[in-house]
Computed example of a mutant assay.
Amino acid sequence: MPRPASDKRERLTAAAIELARSAGFEAATIARIAQEAQVPSGSVYYYFKTKEDVAAAVGAGIAARLAAVRAEHPDGPREALSAFLRSYLGDAAATVSYGTLLSTASAVGGADAHREALAWIQERFEGLGFPAAAARARALHLLAGVEGGGALAHALGDAEPLEREVAHLERWVANAGT
């Protein structure tokens, strides 16, 4: 049964993200995106006229995925931060193989995903009572720590650095402001 045309852009974006993450952005060719999304190659050009359009879609798609993960955790700020950190563990196998989603966004110039994650994390620390500057510093520390753990896990081909960093940061968050 054919898929509805309305989800074609989403499928193309998802395919481009997966190709960029698993094989590098250079591998996200029009032909491979079309094949991965199971659409005719000509359809890709309707949505993505240039490689820059593909890069923008990858960056925006990753930002949207991460925003959805953050939105799933509407609890208090401490619980939301812990859930955000645990989401990295849920993606640990892919991180070991390909790097984090944010590292993929970075590879295509998607700094918006980082900015949005930092702003969200900062808001959670502000919700714990930290002034804006201190909340910003803590947000930078948390994101640098978990992304660094992900980068090391990828480099070593072992999830242990990510697992240890998430555990450490969860303890740090649990004690923040107490």
Rank of each mutant, 00 (worst) to 15 (best):
K8R: 12
G148W: 09
L143R: 02
A135C: 08
K49E: 15
A176I: 05
F48K: 03
A60G: 12
Y88N: 08
H141I: 02
S6H: 13
Y88A: 12
T104I: 04
A57T: 06
G177R: 07
T50G: 14
R171H: 13
A167W: 07
A105R: 01
A117E: 07
F84N: 00
G177V: 08
R124D: 08
A55K: 11
R21P: 00
D91A: 14
A16Q: 09
Y88S: 08
A60S: 14
H114D: 05
P161K: 06
E26Y: 01
L143Q: 09
L85F: 02
A159Q: 11
N175A: 15
A71F: 04
V108F: 05
L143V: 11
F48S: 06
F25P: 05
L66G: 02
R21W: 08
S87Q: 05
H141C: 05
A174C: 04
L156N: 06
L128D: 04
A83W: 03
D91T: 04
I30V: 15
A134W: 02
F130A: 15
A144V: 00
L81V: 07
V44G: 00
S82V: 12
V44T: 10
K51L: 09
A107F: 06
Y45G: 02
L169I: 05
A119Q: 13
S41Y: 10
L12F: 10
R9H: 13
L140H: 11
